[in-house]
Design a protein around this nucleic acid. Structure first.
Length: 423
RNA sequence: GGAGGAAUGGCAGAGUGGCCGAAUGCGUCGGUUUUGAAAACCGAUGUACCUUUGCGGGUACCGUGGGUUCAAAUCCUACUUCCUCCGCCA
């Protein structure tokens, strides 16, 4: 959420930032609403002050056994106008807050200008495109031939976009989840989190899914709960409404959860196989950090996700999202894309973002400086480390062999019970 | 699912309509004392918002939301969370 004070002080800079993100909020209108709201606050509080003072008079009179009926009658009227003004004040508060919740985070100054994904610069590329001396299959053909991912029966159970994983396929997912978690916890000291898969609406507000992207979420209306679209949601919100001591920062956490996405805006896109599905497994990294370190933390977060792909021997590239392609809450974001030899295309497998204090303000996550002074908002970051289906697509296609079997990278074999290949 | 009980500052805990943003104790920070430390004593010690160039002034917050009242930590109400017991259950 934008800081309204910041908008008041730098309206032009905010306007520029929002325009770069293709947001058309009328900032002047917002500021008019803000000043109307502040005026209402002043009015109510002045009247309340009067009311409080009179209240004391009444109390004193009653204690002394004096008659207070004149002042009582007067106060009855004041009480009514306070109620009226307070209602107006609340309406304005709610309205301003609603508008603020729908305004995106302006990009960081280092983010390249651009309109769409076409304009995202490639930051770096790891290794070379693998070459093969036989005809390549895509992941669907490989998986179906091996019988490890059953798309038809997944659809039978839950509809298109739900996968049934079987045998070595299910095992491969489980192995990769463990491999990723071990990487983050053992090599980088992240705390492993096992989080709930359903959360309250206010938690979804904290990480920006609500109110604006409600239609992307699966909901359980009988219980007023939502299925999480990523572990980012419960993990970032662990410390919502709390003030942390500075010493515990940076707070580094990771967790595996399934992710549930309605993909409401992308019907008909990527329907083949498991490139875009309604339920998938992902290991997510989350950091809560001090503001002055958040950009270096973003770099190390991205590298940490990359290390997993490197150790698996996969060809990938890192791109930086330009202003026009940046998501609602992110101030800066790197995407990591794996090479899919079967489809001859890049697959987004991780998205590493710095939200600065945008989510922290929504979720009210603060820290108290060790030197004293007022609590301030932390900066939040998250990154996939990594998403399973697309990682599996790249693994199957990269390590496929002429006979239809698929090699398992060495580092993964212990997690597969020593198995060296699929099929 | 049923029956009871509870929620107050960093912690413990008092407070049943007005003098309560809240006693008291502990903790923390600063000071006095001391060679130093402890003890003792003195003082300070929440958050958000509005307003002011500043000093300051004001409003709100006693789990959360509504209500009653001139006035609510206190009364009513719904909800949330926790505890105890019963039932059910992986």
């Amino acid at each position: 959420m934008l800081d309204i004070k910041l908008v008041r002080e730098n309206p032009e800079a905010i306007k520029l930032g929002l325009r770069a993100k293709k947001d058309n909020t009328d900032i002047d209108k917002l500021l008019a609403l803000d000043s109307e709201r502040r005026e209402a606050i002043s009015k109510v509080e002045k009247l309340k002050n009067k009311q409080n003072a009179a209240s004391k008079e009444i109390a004193k009179a009653k204690r002394n056994g004096e008659d207070a009926s004149t002042i009582l009658a007067e106060m009855k009227e004041i009480s009514q106008s306070v109620a009226k003004l307070a209602t107006r004040r609340e309406e304005l508060d709610t309205e301003l807050n609603n508008q603020l919740l729908h305004i995106p985070n302006p990009p960081h100054s280092s983010v390249p200008q651009g309109i769409s994904e076409e304009d995202n610069p490639v930051v770096r590329v790891w290794s070379d495109k693998p070459s093969y001396d036989f005809e390549l299959k895509d992941h669907v053909d490989i998986a179906e031939a091996l019988g490890i991912y059953d798309f038809k029966r997944g659809a039978k159970l839950s509809g298109s976009g739900f996968i049934l994983q079987r045998g070595q396929g299910a095992r491969l997912t489980r192995a990769l989840i463990s491999y990723c978690l071990d990487h983050h916890t053992l090599k980088h000291g992240f705390e492993e989190i096992g989080a709930p898969f359903v959360v309250r609406p206010e938690v979804m507000v904290g990480t920006c899914q609500l109110p604006k992207f409600k239609e992307d979420m699966y909901a359980l209306p009988d219980d007023n709960l939502y299925l999480i679209p990523t572990a980012e949601v419960p993990v970032t919100n662990i410390y919502r409404e709390e003030v942390l001591p500075e010493e515990v920062l940076p707070k580094k956490m990771c967790g595996y959860t399934p992710c549930f996405r309605r993909e409401a805006g992308s019907h008909g896109k990527d329907t083949r196989g498991m490139k875009r599905v309604h339920q998938f497994d992902k290991v997510e990294m989350v950091k809560l950090v001090k503001p002055e370190t958040s950009y270096q933390e973003l770099e190390s977060l991205t590298l940490q996700a990359e290390e997993i792909l490197q150790s698996l021997g996969l060809h990938y590239r890192v791109i930086e999202l330009c202003t026009g392609d940046l998501s609602f809450g992110a101030a800066k974001c790197y995407d990591i894309e794996l090479w899919s030899p079967g489809a001859q295309a890049w697959l987004e497998v991780s998205s590493c973002s710095n939200f600065e204090d945008f989510q922290a303000r929504r979720a009210n996550i603060k820290f108290k400086p060790a030197t004293g002074g007022k609590p301030q908002f932390v900066h939040t970051l998250n990154g996939s480390g990594v998403a399973m289906p697309r990682l599996i697509i790249a693994l199957l296609e990269t390590y496929q062999q002429a006979d239809g079997t698929v090699k398992i990278p060495e580092v993964l074999q212990p997690y597969m019970g020593g198995v060296g290949q699929l099929g």
